[in-house]
């Protein structure tokens, strides 16, 4: 089975490291890491160039998005992403939130976007859970 390509947007290096380590364990090899919303968004905007560079793996099938980040946080990213989606073909992208907080209000707010498919809690996520979550998408 073809493993999806994943874009990780998180400002914490260790979180990105842990997550990509877990992803690699379940067989995901196409991983791009960005450290805040702005650079994540810029990566998606650079459509033609990245498509050339990454081929079938662009745009990423799954974006794992942190909530609290400097400059552009997760929620601002979601809003900008929705705008960008009207101009660029990003239909393949599905977003999974990756938050340090289990705040139900935050979760409900994120899930209002139809392209947000999941809400994972940092620190509680086991490799098995990640596998089933990714598999479901």
């Amino acid at each position: 089975m073809q493993q999806p390509s994943v874009l990780i947007i998180d400002d914490s290096e260790i979180e990105r490291y842990l997550l990509s380590h877990q992803l690699q364990k379940i067989g995901v090899t196409e991983i791009v890491q960005k450290n805040d919303g702005t650079s994540g968004l810029a990566f998606l905007k650079d459509y033609a160039q990245n498509q050339q560079h990454y081929g079938i793996n662009f745009p990423p099938a799954i974006i794992i998005l942190d909530v609290n980040m400097p400059i552009m946080g997760g929620f601002e990213f979601l809003q900008k992403f929705a705008e960008l989606k009207t101009r660029v073909d990003l239909d393949v992208c599905q977003i999974v939130m990756y938050s340090g907080s289990d705040d139900p209000q935050q979760k409900a707010r994120a899930l209002q976007y139809d392209f947000v498919k999941g809400f994972l809690i940092k620190g509680e996520l086991s490799t098995e859970e990640l596998k089933s979550e990714i598999g479901a998408l």
Partner: peptide, 10 residues
């Protein structure tokens, strides 16, 4: 909590 969780995992 975040770095602690990372340590735990590592």
């Amino acid at each position: 909590k975040a770095p602690l969780n990372a340590i735990k995992r590592l």
